[in-house]
Design a protein around this nucleic acid. Structure first.
Lengths: 214, 214
DNA sequence: ACCTGAACACCGTTCAAGT
DNA sequence: ACCTGAACACCGTTCAAGT
């Protein structure tokens, strides 16, 4: 068939298909041949639209960053900086957890992905407007990202395996009473995220007050 | 040659060689064939010592967790819980940053890796001893892990590309003045980590005081 | 410009065969 | 028990050839 009169592929179509494939079967399922098959096309065709496979995965990750709500950082949004940061963190984490297989790609940093940059830009702008000196505003954006991506990636509960036999109390004297596992399940991650977020914001508020006072 | 009179390989030797290879050339450089070649052996030999490649990488990651200092959580160590948590966080992050290519593997959670579990156990035990209720102690361990691994993984600075041309001020109105890049360089990550860690501990102290008082 | 098949240099893993 | 070579079913990517 060679070249069709109307292109069979587009960057958007490739990204959407790849994204669905990652969500359904994990990162390992995305090979160029498999993805191409899903698109009804032969493997090398993808290279007309992306330089390589990593670029495709970057685009998939960026599509997720693009879903993160940033309206709380708008200049005319009423929320104070603390509330804005809180709401953003919750929205950011939810977007990541909706696509858990993609988190490792996202966690590599904003890179050249435009939505990741837009995100960093919005946080920075809002913090400066709230009175944080630029250097501090940069740190706030970075440290919030640490916590949020860390919480999505290193899901505490998921990290532990199901069967309790793996945890010999002789090796881990305290873990037995920790009722870490089936007991509470995913709630632990929710609770830890909320507890940590509150602690982080409480601590930042202390620093902000000290700054303003001087 | 078939079976040698004395084994050519051991789990330890494989892990050490794999670790060096990851550090020197990154995660992608570790293929079973390449690793075997580095060991002067043929590819399938590895399967006499590990079930599969992932198990090898898990062992590499666990070897790093094992390097994290945990002495601050000893029962007879003088440090209060806040100082212990702080010192542990610094030591943990340093261990991760010493092997940046391995962080994505580590960040998948403790899994069955014994050193990862020992770490979670030590934190939990020390927090309970310091007066945190068990459920809270679990959260503290988890949220600290979020922040620490997130900071090692999503290195803010490394995430941005070098050339400023990538950042059109029209797209990112605030980022221009952010002097994010070459200006400060890696210091940003250091500063953000320290700022975040202090905020986190300040916030936790508030919660701890509220708990004790009741 | 955009797709194809063929080809290259790889993969992870299984397995029978050797000692 | 522990290594080998051969084999299977894959990879990512390049490239000449087609329209």
């Amino acid at each position: 068939m060679a070249r069709p009169r109307k292109p069979l592929l587009s960057r958007q179509l490739i990204v959407e298909t790849a994204s669905a494939l990652v969500d359904a079967e994990g990162l390992d399922a995305v090979s160029t041949r498999r993805l191409a098959a899903e698109l009804g096309v032969s493997g090398p065709s993808l290279y007309n639209h992306f330089r390589n496979k990593d670029e495709i995965l970057d685009a998939v990750a960026d599509a997720i960053s693009a879903q993160v709500d940033l309206s709380m950082f708008d200049e005319d949004d009423g929320r104070d900086w603390r509330t804005a940061l809180h709401d953003w963190a919750v929205s950011y984490r939810a977007a990541l957890l909706a696509h858990p297989h993609t988190v490792p790609v996202l966690a590599r940093g904003p890179g050249r992905r435009p939505a990741g940059l837009r995100l960093a830009d919005a946080v920075f702008g809002a913090m400066v407007r709230a009175g944080w000196p630029p250097a501090q505003a940069t740190r706030v954006g970075a440290l919030m990202r640490y916590f949020i991506t860390g919480s999505a990636l290193g899901s505490f509960t998921a990290g532990f395996v199901g069967d309790a036999a793996a945890y010999d109390p002789a090796d881990y004297p305290h873990l037995g009473q920790a009722h870490l596992l089936a007991d509470r399940g995913e709630g632990i991650d929710e609770d830890a995220f909320e507890t940590g977020l509150r602690a982080l914001l409480d601590g930042l508020e202390l620093q902000h007050r000290a700054l303003i006072r001087s």
